[in-house]
Design a protein around this nucleic acid. Structure first.
Lengths: 205, 205
DNA sequence: TCTACCAAACGAACTAGTTCGTTTTGATAC
DNA sequence: GTATCAAAACGAACTAGTTCGTTTGGTAGA
């Protein structure tokens, strides 16, 4: 943004490490408590920064939330960026990512529930990602590896629903134990991949 | 509770209509804003009740939230109570309900995000419902109408994920228009049913 | 000196929960 | 019909605590 046009030598140095620390602390805070539940003081403290710094970098709590949301969406999109020609294995990768970074899905859920209006940059990111995904499915359908019977946008939504089903299912979400044994994760991943594979296989009839 | 042992005639009359109004207003408020975002004053006002009344019926904000959560879970379970022998059509019914009562899924999401610990009665309700669902799937597998290759609890989660995929998918959740045209709803329902049907059909191999 | 930073405090707004005096209601007694 | 009574309800004010966002005074390094 404004790091490019510095007058003299001014080495790019550490690219605002304080800002970075604040952003990371905010990410954890917002993921845990949402926009309304997050506490500015706690973010500053966990970032080992002062509130004064926080408010020079981000003018409002909402602005900080938007920054976190945008960062998460960008990371999410980058991490699962359209690899390969197998939608089922793509779903597996998506699942892996949702396990490795549960905060990404949490922030998305917080944003959905708490900010029914806001448009922002984040919204554009989501639209772009979604469009790209749909386009990918369409080309897979053209290539014949995905059943043409599906509306591409429906299939995209279904895959996301399947990938995140254990995040959203009440029974496992409310359960006391995290149930995150490695074996459980692996079994769930296999189910995700198998489910998507069953959806896409060009069916008879 | 104490309506039974009244000295004289004292007809049971209207069984606490004010409490009912408060509960309904709270339901709308919590669904819209969650536990932290909900405002007690707003609930009281929308219920056409005074705060004094609200606090005689429910001692704390959290207690009111629990009551709402329990009510919603009960209604949800009752509305979709294990009908029929076709899991795919069951998913369709679940989808219909999620469209007719979006507040039910919203409250569940709020509870998941905002109350990571609380056990309460609601938790038991969820467990019971889940267990019942798994048992149903097991018997369908025994009967041969559902592929035995699936772990029953996995399939249960997958069905829920498929049913609620448009609620949780960022692209449609963040989208400006509700996109709730009747035609769209019907098409999505068809996709849900078809997806589940593809999952359960006993496959070759 | 200028910039980045911190710790501490402050003001204003908000909010959960309480209290209090008054009013309404509905049933019974006269 | 009217007097009476108790419970349910209202509404407004109040307490006590919390939180955002700002400000102030001061430190350390380039």
């Amino acid at each position: 943004m404004d790091t490019a046009d510095l007058p003299t030598g001014a080495p790019p140095k550490d690219l605002e490490p304080t800002r970075q620390r604040i952003l990371e602390a905010a990410r954890a805070e917002f993921a845990a408590f949402g926009l309304a539940g997050a506490r500015i003081d706690r973010i500053a403290r966990n970032a080992s920064a002062s509130k004064e710094r926080l408010y020079t970098y981000y003018r409002k709590k909402e602005e900080l939330f938007s920054a976190v949301l945008e960062l998460n969406l960008t990371e999410f999109a980058a991490a699962v960026a359209h690899q390969g020609a197998d939608l089922a294995e793509f779903a597996g990768i998506l699942y892996d990512h949702s396990v490795a970074h549960p905060e990404h899905l949490r922030i998305i859920d917080w944003a959905r529930l708490e900010r029914q209006e806001a448009s922002d940059p984040p919204n554009a990111l989501v639209d772009t990602f979604h469009a790209e995904q749909v386009r990918g499915i369409l080309s897979l359908q053209a290539a014949g590896s995905v059943d043409r019977a599906w509306a591409a946008d429906h299939l995209s939504a279904l895959v996301f629903g399947i990938v995140s089903c254990w995040v959203h299912e009440p029974a496992s979400a409310f359960s006391p134990q995290p149930a995150s044994g490695g074996a459980v994760i692996a079994a769930r991943r296999a189910s995700v991949v198998r489910a998507v594979r069953r959806l896409i296989e060009p069916a008879a009839g």
